[in-house]
Every structure is written in structure tokens, then in C-alpha cells.
Design a protein around this nucleic acid. Structure first.
Length: 328
DNA sequence: AAGTGAACCAACCGCACATCA
DNA sequence: ATGATGTGCGGTTGGTTCACT
């Protein structure tokens, strides 16, 4: 494909015919830069160049590779899309749980959070947060940073996620929630006690305290849980709202080993770059599983759990928040 | 079938910081 | 010490797809 003769798009997405502009000065040369969606040829050029020369020095890389893109654009395209270890597809329940936990700990430190989700990019996590989580806060007319919403996430949404993870595991009777060797993986398929085990890379394992039934009154919740509303690893936000299936964006139009399934094409990368101490993150001081967390409002006798028919309105977020409010 | 709005996500921008000559 | 350049990050935008009417 001849990029010179292509139609270019400016920042606003307008189509600009490049053939009318023969520009020589360096300043004007910048205006020759392509913007907007990447083409297959551009992707291939970038992949091939990095395969031969490695990454880094993105501005010169862009020039050397013959790409009419900024270095920034090339870097972003590589990191967020073309990198072989980028894991595409829906955010799993386990990943959702981890995102919530880590966001509670670090806030909008997307890149830092992404370090704990191998194969996921900060952009992807950020998008997930903005589209799924903030959406609900907006719908409920409460600030996503408000204590109200944070408490709801911490005491309701996250336990629910864990319930669903456990339920999915027991329902399927197999490790269908496994995604990659290093992503939190539900392994306990027959355990009928109230713990479930999560491990990373097969060697980090924790067992959650039995907070679900004992402290959260979630035994009621479990009763109304049905496999129909469970997730078996496909994306679904945990408020119970419908999320349309996202097409598999794995690019089979070129032979890049995009990791979209259980296989991990580059284990070295993970082992070097994503040594994750899940135990540490799960037991964070601000986290759900912290020993010193404030469970006061979640005492079993707490009214918000015991009165009202939670099972009938299960996971209606409005009800959750109302119950939290009533109890505060 | 067509129109419309919501949801999703790739890509961009500006800024801050790091590195180097 | 300083300016230029490279890199990384968080916020935002806009095109595409999907669901609903």
C-alpha cells in the first residue's frame, strides 16, 4: 500500500487527501504524518522493524521503519496492540476483582495496575474502568471516588465477584476460569468449604478467609445465585448489567502471535516483567482481605444485610447503596 | 429496514519526568 | 546547569459496533 497516496486523517478524523500536499520543510513534514487507525501494512512494518532491530527510540524507529507516524504513535501501537504478549479479549472475573482491588489501593495508576495483570495494557484497564465502573457510578448519581461507591465496591461488588468466581468453578467442575498461567486462576473445583483458592503461576496461592458467609451474610446471596447469571470467564461487569459480547480482536490477518487464549507465547517476558505477589496485593492495607479492614458495617447483625429481602433484589446496585446508606 | 443512542475501545493529546549531549 | 530529545502516564476524543425502538 502506498501510504503517500493514501487518504490521511487529521486529528478530528477528517479525511485529507495527501496527494495535494508536496511538502519539504521539516515543519510541514510533520503534517504529513499519518493519524488515525493503523493499517495492516503499517502494523507489519512496525512488527518487522522491531523484530529486526528491537524497540526503543521511537521517533527514530518510526523514521527508519518508513512509518509516517510519530514515535509516540508507534510506541502506543506496539505496546497496546502489536506486542506478542498482549492478551486480548474480555476481562475475566478474576481480572475484574484484581482491578477493583488494585484501584482501591492505588487509584488511577493504570500502568501500575496493569503490571499486575499480565498481558493487559493500562489503556485496556483504564477503558474497562471508565466504561464499566464509572458508568454505574454515573447511573447512580454518585461520585466514583465517593466513600459510598467505594464501600459498595469493596463490600458488595468484590465479594460478589468472588462468589461468582467460586460458583463458576464449582459449576463447571473444571478449571475453566483459567486464562493464562500467570493470571489469577480459579483452581478449586470441588471444594465445598467457603474458601477458594487462587494462584498465580502455579506457585502463589492464597486462601481467602471465610468472610463471605460469616461476615457478609452472603449465604443468602449464594442461595439466589444461579449458573445462568454466572460468568464462565467471559466478560461481564458484575453489576449484572448486560455487556455485549466483544468480538475477538485477535488479528489473524497477519501472523503475529497475539495471545488470545490460554497459551502464552512468551513466558520469559512474564517471568521477568510480571513477577507478581498476589498475596501482597490481596492483603493490602486498604484491601478487601486486609486483617485490619473495617468490617464494622458488615457485621452479620447489621441491619442492611438482615432486613429486607436481599435475595429478591440481589445485586441491584441501587438497593445495595440504599442499604449501605441506611446503615450509615 | 432504518434511525438512534449507548457502549466500547483505539488512538490522540498534554504534561511530567528521565536521559543525554 | 541547561536545553533537546525520548519516554511514560493519565485524561480525552471520536469512530465503530451493537442493541433497541
Amino acid at each position: 500500500m502506498n501510504i503517500q497516496s493514501e487518504l490521511l486523517m487529521d486529528v478530528k478524523g477528517k479525511v485529507v487527501n495527501n496527494s495535494s500536499t508536496m511538502i519539504q520543510s521539516e515543519e510541514e513534514e510533520d503534517m504529513d504524518l499519518r493519524r488515525g487507525p493503523w493499517t495492516v501494512d503499517e502494523d507489519l512494518a512496525l512488527i518487522n522493524y522491531i523484530a529486526n532491530h528491537g524497540e526503543g527510540r521511537w521517533n527514530s524507529l518510526a523514521r527508519s521503519a518508513g512509518l509516517k507516524r510519530t514515535g509516540k504513535s508507534c510506541r502506543l501501537r506496539w505496546l497496546n496492540y502489536l506486542r506478542p504478549d498482549v492478551r486480548r479479549g474480555n476481562i475475566t472475573l478474576e481480572e475484574q476483582l484484581l482491578i477493583l482491588e488494585l484501584h482501591a489501593r492505588w487509584g488511577n495508576r493504570w500502568s501500575k495496575i496493569a503490571q499486575y495483570l499480565p498481558g493487559r495494557t493500562d489503556n485496556e484497564i483504564k477503558n474497562y474502568w471508565r466504561t464499566r465502573v464509572q458508568k454505574h457510578a454515573k447511573q447512580l448519581k454518585c461520585d466514583v471516588n465517593s466513600k459510598q461507591f467505594k464501600d459498595a465496591m469493596r463490600y458488595l461488588w468484590m465479594p460478589r465477584l468472588m462468589e461468582r468466581i467460586q460458583a463458576a468453578a464449582t459449576t463447571t467442575g473444571s478449571s475453566t476460569l483459567s486464562v493464562t498461567p500467570n493470571v489469577i486462576t480459579t483452581t478449586n473445583t470441588t471444594n465445598n468449604n467457603n474458601n477458594f483458592e487462587v494462584h498465580s503461576g502455579g506457585n502463589m496461592m492464597f486462601s481467602t478467609p471465610t468472610i463471605m458467609n460469616n461476615n457478609f451474610g452472603c449465604s443468602q446471596i449464594k442461595q439466589s445465585y444461579t449458573p445462568e447469571n454466572s460468568s464462565t470467564g467471559t466478560s461481564s461487569d458484575s453489576f449484572g448489567t448486560h455487556v455485549s459480547p466483544v468480538s475477538d480482536l485477535t488479528h489473524d490477518y497477519y501472523s503475529v502471535p497475539v495471545c488470545s487464549n490460554n497459551s502464552n507465547p512468551n513466558m520469559d517476558y512474564y517471568q521477568q516483567s510480571h513477577q507478581v505477589n498476589y498475596l501482597d496485593c490481596i492483603t493490602s492495607p486498604s484491601g478487601l482481605f486486609s486483617a485490619d479492614m473495617d468490617f464494622q458495617i458488615m457485621e452479620p447483625n447489621t441491619q442492611w444485610i438482615q432486613n429486607g429481602d436481599i435475595s429478591n433484589n440481589l445485586w441491584s446496585f441501587e438497593n445495595m447503596l440504599q442499604q449501605l446508606n441506611d446503615n450509615m
